[in-house]
C-alpha cells in the first residue's frame, strides 16, 4: 500500500479525505490502544490534514498525539461520570 500523499488527498472531497486518512491512521492507533482506537481516531481526524499526513509518516508525532487524545478522552469520561 503506497503512502498517502497530499496530492492523492487533493483529488478527493473533504469528508473523503478524512476517510482516507482515518483508514491509514486506525490500524496504527489500534496497535497502541485497541479498545479506544475508534474514538481516538475520531478525535485525531479533527486535526488539519497536513499534520495528519505528517503523523502517518512519524510514529513519534503519532504517539504524542495519541497520548494527548487519550488524556482528553479520560478527562471527558471522568467529567461525564461525576456530572
Amino acid at each position: 500500500r503506497e503512502p498517502l500523499s497530499a496530492s492523492m488527498l487533493a483529488s478527493a472531497l473533504p469528508h473523503v479525505q478524512k476517510q482516507m486518512i482515518g483508514d491509514r491512521l486506525y490500524p496504527l492507533i489500534y496497535a497502541l490502544h485497541s479498545e479506544l482506537a475508534g474514538k481516538i481516531t475520531g478525535m485525531l481526524l479533527e486535526i488539519d490534514n497536513s499534520e495528519l499526513l505528517h503523523m502517518l509518516e512519524s510514529p513519534e508525532s503519532l504517539n504524542a498525539k495519541v497520548e494527548e487524545a487519550l488524556i482528553m478522552l479520560q478527562a471527558h469520561q471522568a467529567e461525564e461520570q461525576t456530572d
Binding site: 469528508h15 478524512k18 476517510q19 482515518g22 483508514d23 491512521l25 486506525y26 490500524p27 475508534g38 474514538k39 481516538i40 481516531t41 475520531g42 478525535m43 481526524l45 479533527e46 478522552l73 471527558h76 461525564e80
Partner: peptide, 26 residues
C-alpha cells in the same frame, strides 16, 4: 441526561464513511 457531549468523540470505523465532523457541526 442525553446531552450530545456523551456522543463525543465521534467514533471512526474502518471502511465506514466518515461523517464525524458533520455530526458535530450544526
Amino acid at each position: 441526561s442525553n446531552g450530545s457531549s456523551v456522543n463525543w468523540p465521534p467514533e471512526f470505523h474502518p471502511g465506514v464513511p466518515w461523517k464525524g465532523l458533520q455530526s458535530i457541526d450544526p
